[in-house]
Design a protein around this nucleic acid. Sequence first.
DNA 1: CAGCATTGTGAAAGCGCTTACAGGAAAGGC
DNA 2: GCCTTTCCTGTAAGCGCTTTCACAATGCTG
Lengths: 333, 333
Amino acid sequence: MVDVTIYEVARRAGVSIATVSRALRGTGPVAARTREKVLKAVEELNFTPSRLGVSLAEGRHAANGIVFPDLAGPYYTQVLLGYEEVASELGRSVVILSTKGRTRVHELVRDLAGRVDGLLVFGHTVSDAQVAELVGVGMPLVFVSREPLPGADTLRSENTASARALAGHLLGHGYERFTFLGAPLATGDDVDERWQGVRSVLGGAIEAVPTGEYTVECGYDAALRLLRSAARPRAVVCSDDEVALGVLLAAEELGLAVPDDLAVTGWDDIMAARHARPALTTIRQPMRELGARAARALDELITGARDTPAHLVLTTELVVRASCGHHHQEECT
Amino acid sequence: MVDVTIYEVARRAGVSIATVSRALRGTGPVAARTREKVLKAVEELNFTPSRLGVSLAEGRHAANGIVFPDLAGPYYTQVLLGYEEVASELGRSVVILSTKGRTRVHELVRDLAGRVDGLLVFGHTVSDAQVAELVGVGMPLVFVSREPLPGADTLRSENTASARALAGHLLGHGYERFTFLGAPLATGDDVDERWQGVRSVLGGAIEAVPTGEYTVECGYDAALRLLRSAARPRAVVCSDDEVALGVLLAAEELGLAVPDDLAVTGWDDIMAARHARPALTTIRQPMRELGARAARALDELITGARDTPAHLVLTTELVVRASCGHHHQEECT
DNA sequence: CAGCATTGTGAAAGCGCTTACAGGAAAGGC
DNA sequence: GCCTTTCCTGTAAGCGCTTTCACAATGCTG
């Protein structure tokens, strides 16, 4: 790592480092002839300004952070990609932090916060105390999948109305006993809203069963237990597609036909939802756009273009496929 | 972002900034009483050393970069998580860069390189010219899924022997005409090795058909074309699991039974491979460990613990499931 | 008690850049 | 020909930290 500095460029071009800086960033006037000399020297020395030097002088990192539990499944992945793409367009790079299975998350987040100008945080991956701390020091923050809180942006997909629509659709199939599989882990997060939504329609006809995690494995295990019990429900509404896929597996193993013996629905419309057999009825949410918007929101907060927290809700779409019951004109996207 | 600096801590503790630094990092002797005063001041002011200041002075970023095409599917995701976890253990954070759909990748990589101490690069996401450039300036580099090249580490899963084993297994089923779907995009990458491996066993009995990308969609499209043609193969060996899932979809659409009419195999053993129906026969590779090892290798290179490039190959495992044909004692993990 | 090794501390020089600020030169107005 | 403007350019002061070096104070040895 032989580093050529701005001093060498300046010396070679026969100017001061201030002029080199100005010529390169286009700030302040520089005579055409001088600029040429500088650019020539830059070219010859293959000079790139040290990011560290620039950042220290500018007082900003030109980087965004993102905190997610893990990358299991397409949800986080898609949000991440949308985030990185837009951040990159805005000249910021993205520093990641996965909290799953990590001890000392507090320290990790603190370290991350020291490396970036703003942070995207998923749900409740960061403790409330630390969130307050971050808000306190003025760190620009945007949350995805978390109830609005003062001092930070919030960005989420619509959940409640979609959940009601889904519940309504299931009622239309004539089912009477339901289970919500993948009970919410935290009040106010996406899954909690979904649960509240379906319950507001189904009332006592649905009960929540936890899975521990929102994964295929956990969904599978929980579903085995549930489906073997005497009180087997007629329809299972899952917290997300992964859990639903687990249910599909369990049903197959137990010889239950979906949707004839058991209706199953997911949430997110991940790739595998379409490919599952039967294909999953689910709610599509704009995951990638969630990330993209988060990056823009953060940019506004960082640059000071906006200083009051915003809370945005993106619309979703009910995607009806085979897993929830038979339809006259099936739409299997 | 009110920042408290080392000067304020020093003033409050009644010592010099040098002492604060020493007390905090444990470098150089500090009297117990002094240390206490410093720690007290640090506590009271809630001081955290500025990452920028530290990095500039130390001359290192304490960060690693990673360049991947996208995060479609679990492969990149798993490697990324393994990488981030170990990097984090080693005190380094991870800066990401996705190249898919990006113009000016050269600049993006250059910018990334200026922000980190070392880089993990997947396959051929970075041009050979730029790789040479990076090697030239002494940037520690480790490649995953790329043929060994001078000046950088290389880390990959075993491909050729596994491919031969897979081919042998298929021959055991009695098939005679094969297609390799998802032709290699670059010589020397993982898929190329897989292709070379199966061909070394099957010879003229297999031909390669490109998919453009290694995704379910592309696999599906290519498979539709292939399976409708007169010269429909009896068995399709896919570049990876995603493509194989696409083939499964196409086969279903065309009313072909798998494995009775058509045998299909994947590669990677992603989650969906087990959940597909029929479950996919595939090759399992230790994706997460690939990332973990990359992080360690990079650390050695960065700290100077090692200065000669290393080239490591991790072992894989043939996972036989239902998609490749009927077996007497089926092992459906 | 002189002499020497230890230990603890501060001053100051970087690390590589940005950006007031000031001053010199060229150009225009009278 | 003198005085303003307007343009360029350089000097130097940071940005926040680490670390070398010198020096003072302390503890030991003989």
